[in-house]
Amino acid sequence: MSFLGNIVWFVLGGFISFLSWSIIGVLWCITIVGIPVGVQCFKFAKMSAAPFGKDIQYSDSGMSLLINIVWLFLGGLVMAVEEVIMGIIFCITIIGIPFGLQHFKHAKLALMPFGARIIRI
Rank of each mutant, 00 (worst) to 15 (best):
I118F: 00
R120H: 12
G115S: 06
A45E: 00
I92K: 14
E83K: 12
S17R: 06
F104Q: 14
S48H: 03
T31I: 10
I30D: 07
Q40V: 04
R117M: 06
N68Q: 11
I85P: 02
R117G: 00
L65P: 01
G53C: 00
G62K: 15
V26Y: 10
F52I: 02
R120N: 13
I89G: 11
S22V: 02
M1H: 01
A45W: 07
W21G: 05
C29F: 03
V26N: 07
Q57T: 10
I32N: 06
I88H: 14
F3I: 05
I23G: 08
N68K: 13
I118Y: 01
F73Y: 12
G53M: 01
A107K: 10
K43W: 00
K105E: 09
W71T: 13
K43Q: 03
I23T: 03
L109Q: 07
L109C: 00
F44T: 04
I7P: 01
H106L: 11
L12Y: 07
I67N: 12
Y58M: 11
I121N: 15
M1F: 02
F90H: 12
G25S: 04
L4R: 04
R120S: 14
I16V: 15
M112V: 11
V26Q: 06
N6E: 01
N68C: 11
F18E: 06
L65E: 15
L101P: 09
G62M: 15
Q102P: 02
I30A: 09
A45P: 04
F42C: 07
P113L: 02
S61L: 07
A50C: 02
H106C: 08
L12Q: 09
V84C: 14
S59W: 04
I119S: 11
I94W: 07
Q102V: 08
F44S: 04
G62Y: 14
F3V: 01
Y58H: 05
F52R: 01
H103E: 15
T93R: 09
L72V: 12
M79A: 13
V81H: 05
V11W: 06
V11N: 08
W9T: 04
L4G: 03
A80R: 10
F3C: 00
K46T: 03
G5P: 04
